[in-house]
Structures are given as structure tokens and as C-alpha cells.
Simulated scan of single mutants.
Amino acid sequence: MATPDFILSLREKIGHELLWLPGVTAVVVREPAGASAGREVLLVKRADTGEWTPVTGIVDPGEEPAVAAAREVLEEADVVAEPTSLARVGVTGRVTYPNGDVSQYLDLTFRFRYVSGEPHPADGENLEATWFDTEALPPMSDDMAARLAAGLTPETTPTGFSFP
């Protein structure tokens, strides 16, 4: 799915100014059958940057973040997954898009359990969607690696923030 309609509507009013948005990252994990198989994680190769990442997306107005992440996994990779925990809360740096729009995201990273589906780039946002063994991951940005690491940690306490 391209830019959500509510963001296009906001952009009509504020132009390219900084827009603060809630975002989600879905770290979908599956345990393949067979004693020799290791744990796998779903990654997508983004069409806009060519980078491998977990599935990410924007939370629609009024949408629960975990529901948004599950929706994004289904829309982008045609995989059904269910959230098991909130793994990380973080803030991205400012992103300036080629058209001049500036955004920054509050990112909520969720760990998901795979339910069904064979991954493929379902909505045109990605070039590829596939499973990677967690011991043989492709290169990715430090930010995406941190989100992935948090989602692969079986802790239930979110990381990435501190209390005063």
C-alpha cells in the first residue's frame, strides 16, 4: 500500500513540514519443523531503498498498534502472524523523502508468531519477502538490526527507553 490517505490529507495542509507519526515493526518468527532447522525470521527487501528489513508500517488513526503490525505483515508479505509481545519502543531519526516530505516516527516493535502463508511481495512495496535463518541474516542498517534483535529476544519488557 502506498502512502495512507490520512497522511496525504495532512500533507495538503502542512506541505513538507515535519510530520510525527506512529509506526510499527513486525518481527515475525517461525520455528521450522525438523531437528536440524533453526529459528527463522521474515524479512522484506524494500522497493524504495533495496534494503532488507522486518515488515514496517504506519498505524492508521484509531488502529491498535499490534493490529496495524499484523495488517502490514498480511498486506506486504501475505503472511498471517499473531503478536506475542511488545519488544521495543524507539524513535527514528528524521526522514526526508525524495519529494521533500519530512517525517519522524515513534516505532513500536512487536514480536510475532508465524501462523500461515508463504511470503511474497504482495503489495508492491517490496521486491522480495522471505525467511532467513536468524544465524544468517543479510546486512541491514543499525536501526533495523536493533529492532530485529529486540524482536528476537524472548523478553517481554520493551527495550530502547529508560525511566527517570
Rank of each mutant, 00 (worst) to 15 (best):
R39S: 12
E40W: 11
V44T: 01
K45D: 02
K45A: 02
G50S: 09
E51M: 11
E51I: 09
T53C: 11
T53A: 11
V55T: 08
D60N: 15
D60M: 12
P61R: 13
G62W: 15
G62N: 15
E63S: 11
E63I: 11
E63W: 09
P65F: 05
A66F: 02
V67R: 14
A69C: 09
A70F: 00
A70K: 00
R71Y: 08
R71T: 12
R71D: 06
E72R: 02
E72G: 01
V73T: 09
V73N: 01
V73F: 02
E75A: 10
E76P: 01
A77E: 01
D78R: 04
D78L: 07
V80T: 11
A81V: 04
A81W: 00
E82C: 14
P83G: 02
T84F: 02
T84A: 12
A87G: 13
V91Y: 13
T92G: 04
T92V: 13
R94I: 07
V95R: 10
V95K: 08
V95Q: 10
T96E: 12
T96R: 10
Y97A: 09
P98T: 14
P98I: 13
N99K: 13
V102R: 13
V102T: 14
S103Y: 09
Q104G: 03
Q104F: 04
Q104C: 07
Y105D: 00
Y105K: 02
Y105W: 11
L106H: 05
L106E: 04
D107K: 03
D107M: 05
D107S: 07
F110V: 06
F112P: 00
F112N: 00
R113N: 15
R113S: 15
R113V: 15
Y114L: 11
Y114C: 09
Y114E: 09
G117H: 02
H120M: 03
P121M: 12
P121F: 08
D123A: 12
G124K: 08
E125M: 02
E125P: 00
N126K: 03
L127T: 07
L127M: 06
L127K: 04
E128M: 08
A129E: 01
T130I: 11
W131F: 10
W131L: 10
W131P: 02
F132S: 05
F132A: 07
F132K: 04
F132V: 07
D133T: 09
D133I: 04
D133P: 10
E135R: 06
E135P: 01
L137H: 06
L137E: 08
P138R: 07
P138Q: 07
S141M: 06
S141K: 06
D142F: 09
D142E: 13
D143Q: 09
D143S: 08
M144L: 05
M144N: 05
A145Q: 15
A145D: 14
A146Q: 09
R147S: 04
L152G: 00
T153C: 14
E155H: 14
T156L: 15
P158C: 12
P158T: 10
G160S: 12
G160A: 14
S162C: 13
S162N: 12
